[in-house]
């Protein structure tokens, strides 16, 4: 068991920050590697982020929140 923190990824060439537009999972859900967990909108594009880990997810960032690259988005208990 380990708690992995997911941070805002650098998903586009120009990306400095992004806005969480949708969560596809809820706190306590079990997620698999590669499962789409949230969508983040940047100036150029909307990136659907896949879970890099399998485990139990706890979102930290709220829908509508704008965050810089590297800010925590969620944790996954593996």
């Amino acid at each position: 068991m380990a708690r992995m923190t997911l941070k805002v990824p650098k998903g586009a060439v120009s990306m400095q920050h992004g806005t969480i537009v949708e969560w596809f999972v809820s706190a306590g859900d079990t997620v698999a590697v590669g499962q789409t967990i949230y969508a983040i909108e940047t100036e150029k594009t909307t990136l659907e982020v896949e879970s890099p880990f399998a485990g139990t997810i706890t979102p930290i960032a709220e829908t509508g929140q704008t965050l810089p690259i590297g800010a925590p988005v969620a944790t996954v208990e593996t």
Binding site: K7, P9, K10, V33, G70, V73
Partner: peptide, 13 residues
Amino acid sequence: IQQGLAAGDLQFQ
């Protein structure tokens, strides 16, 4: 590497 990028631990193109 892509796992690190998705988790925000690595940040590069």
